[in-house]
Design a protein around this nucleic acid. Sequence first.
DNA 1: CAGGATCCCCGGGGATACTG
DNA 2: CAGTATCCCCGGGGATCCTG
Lengths: 110, 110
Amino acid sequence: MRPRLDDLADDCTVEAAMEVIGGKWKLVILRHLLDGTKRFGELDRALPGITPRMLTRQLRELEADRLVLRTVYPQVPPKVEYSVTEIGQSLRTLVDQLEQWGHFYRRSLT
Amino acid sequence: MRPRLDDLADDCTVEAAMEVIGGKWKLVILRHLLDGTKRFGELDRALPGITPRMLTRQLRELEADRLVLRTVYPQVPPKVEYSVTEIGQSLRTLVDQLEQWGHFYRRSLT
DNA sequence: CAGGATCCCCGGGGATACTG
DNA sequence: CAGTATCCCCGGGGATCCTG
């Protein structure tokens, strides 16, 4: 039985989605932003272990993928806020479900 | 407002889940196995672009993480079947939802 | 048929120091 | 405060060839 042509497209869809949310800190950042708009420093402090460099990179990628909105307030000292876009919002149930599954998975291990 | 301690645990849960399903071919393989038990060669043919080496590696990791069951039939020529475990089954809705979101995401781009 | 062995490359990710 | 600039490392992933 040959695979249907649709499988190829669906596989690509799943792979594409993984590329967008597959970064090491992407979903963790998203989880925090889904609780509300946050500043760079807040995220930095909320994510123990992340470096400013990585935080910047992941945020920029999330922004490029239109999941996160970056708002710069032209003032001194600088103030930058990050929030989730509508597309980012659409990931809420997925993130929640991934977390649920994570718990289930941990409980399932012997 | 300090982050709640729970956030740390939940972040870890999400990250742990991503480690299990984050391999490049993991979910794609899972998608095919969720349609039914398949042999090595079937998967190899069903996944254009994958090499035998990568297929083996990802399958072994899925097996180690208890998402996939590997059944060897001691005969010549060799026959090996792969199927999803109960834990693997528990990912079905997640994979489906990821695919749904992938479609939504593509439609959302401009 | 179902892999194993080898070799290789790129880039995601990290550590540290510096700046408008 | 919110990042840049460098440097570096590891390993995920790929290509190719071989085998019980």
